[in-house]
């Protein structure tokens, strides 16, 4: 079971490209029809250098281009079938747009047990940097692990 010794663990940085075709597919999948996310001209009118990404897309980019998208689970010996997403947050410093190359660096910032050990909450912070060194965004997430029932309970 994951314990507080995992705090501070970091994982292989992921470099991801904001590609127009994949972004279009994402917009289709979520039914996003807003021209700013689909049309370069509309994006330029809004002041972007290229089509920007919708608010949650940074989370997806990290998983898409990771060698092992569930690395932190395998590294911490957590069964994927026992994981739920508890919380997710984004802080945006600069918009991500088509053509950007972004690097994601994630680390564990907290591990807490809940409900007498029935659940473990793992907090992970991810820093997102652009190819030119600009600090683009930060992501925070809390993963909930449903632990196997202890024999004594």
């Amino acid at each position: 079971m994951v314990d507080r010794s995992a705090i501070g663990r970091s994982f292989t940085p992921v470099t991801a490209h904001v590609e127009p075709g994949r972004l279009r597919y994402f917009c289709e999948a979520i039914g996003e029809r807003s021209p700013v996310y689909r049309d370069a001209q509309a994006a330029r009118v809004e002041g972007y250098p290229a089509i920007p990404v919708p608010p949650t897309y940074l989370f997806c980019l990290e998983m898409m281009d990771a060698e092992n998208p569930f690395e932190f689970l395998t590294e911490l010996d957590i069964d994927l079938a026992r994981v739920l997403h508890g919380e997710q947050g984004f802080t945006y410093h600069v918009p991500a747009v088509v053509g950007d190359t972004l690097t994601f660096r994630s680390r564990v910032t907290d591990v807490t047990e809940k409900k007498g050990g029935a659940m473990t909450l793992i907090a992970v912070v991810t820093e997102v940097m652009r190819q030119d060194g600009v600090h683009l965004a930060d992501m925070t997430r809390t993963i909930v692990v449903r632990n196997p029932k202890a024999a004594s309970t």
């Binding site: 997710q88 984004f90 802080t91 945006y92 918009p95």
Partner: peptide, 15 residues
């Protein structure tokens, strides 16, 4: 849909 995307500074949720 309601606010300009470029004005969003932070966005968080609890599931």
């Amino acid at each position: 849909d309601a606010v300009a995307p470029k004005n969003v500074r932070a966005f968080s949720t609890r599931f």
